[in-house]
């Protein structure tokens, strides 16, 4: 196992070029990044900057065409097979023919957990995302925010070390999003997971992260990595503090340097 504060993800000069009909597209170029155990890392940048691609590369859903990438000291694909990741997409992707509890049990069934173990884990993660009484409901009986919480519970159910989230709250309104951000921080504090989080929103990135990775497009690359000085325990009001505003400003500067506003 990795040492508690050691690097979980290490990227050295990662390149990824897609061959398309219009010629090669440089989705990622020369990406260097270290994510430590227990970090909350946000990837921010405009569309096409490769933030989702980088997350997918870490999850072995894409294969880099150059450079070195290790996860827990393994290749991403080995890490995937060792169930190192829970992945959360923008859409909840719950199966309409399964109840919430059955949906959360799905990866557990696939991974061959025993029935008793499944039931116990489902109950535990349901409480973790505050959906205790909703296991027997079908997805369509729940609001969008609750469905997304269920999909986070599903990603947590098999105790992956790393939670990768691709704009998980992008489709939700701001009030729900604020509440879920708070809940996510709480969950992170309680589980100590390493989290990779893709977002479009500067306040969201600053509020959640210990490390903010600013990216820019054409070719997709990292322009700035900001280590947040904010404490790990963060009430919503922290967003009105001077420090918060200063980091948000720094992120905006980083985006401008990458010509993201052109």
């Amino acid at each position: 196992m990795t040492d508690p504060a050691g690097p979980v993800v290490e990227a050295r000069g990662v390149d990824l070029t897609f061959q398309t009909a219009d010629g090669p597209v440089h989705a990622l170029k020369g990406v260097d990044l270290t994510i430590n155990q227990g970090d909350f890392v946000s990837f921010i940048g405009p569309s096409g900057c490769g933030k989702t691609t980088l997350l997918r590369t870490i999850a072995a859903l894409e294969t880099p065409t150059g450079g070195g990438l290790t996860v827990n000291g393994m290749t991403p694909d080995e890490a995937r097979k060792a169930r190192a990741y829970g992945y959360v997409f923008q859409a909840p992707g719950l199966y309409p023919w399964r109840t919430i509890a059955q949906n959360i049990a799905l990866p557990l069934e696939i991974m061959g957990f025993s029935k008793a173990d499944r039931a116990e884990r489902v109950q535990r993660v349901l409480e973790l995302v505050d959906l205790g009484g909703f296991g027997g409901k079908y997805p369509w009986q729940l609001s969008g925010g609750m469905q997304q919480r269920a999909s986070i519970a599903r990603a947590l159910s098999f105790d992956a070390d790393i939670l990768l989230m691709d704009e998980p709250f992008g489709a939700l309104d701001e009030i729900v999003r604020d509440r879920l951000n708070e809940a996510l921080l709480d969950l992170w504090a309680r589980t100590g997971k390493t989290i990779g989080f893709v977002t479009h929103s500067i306040p969201e990135a600053v509020y959640l992260s210990t490390k903010i990775v600013v990216m820019s497009p054409r070719p997709g690359r990292i322009t700035k990595v900001i280590d947040s000085p904010l404490p790990r325990v963060r009430p919503l009001e922290i967003r009105d503090s001077q420090e918060f505003i200063a980091i948000a400003h720094e992120v905006r500067e980083g985006l401008r340097e990458g010509h993201s506003y052109d």
Binding site: R83, Y87, I110
Partner: peptide
């Protein structure tokens, strides 16, 4: 693609 990616991430 998303649902298939999820399955892949669980090594199904």
């Amino acid at each position: 693609a998303m649902q298939l990616d999820l399955m892949r991430s669980w090594n199904a």
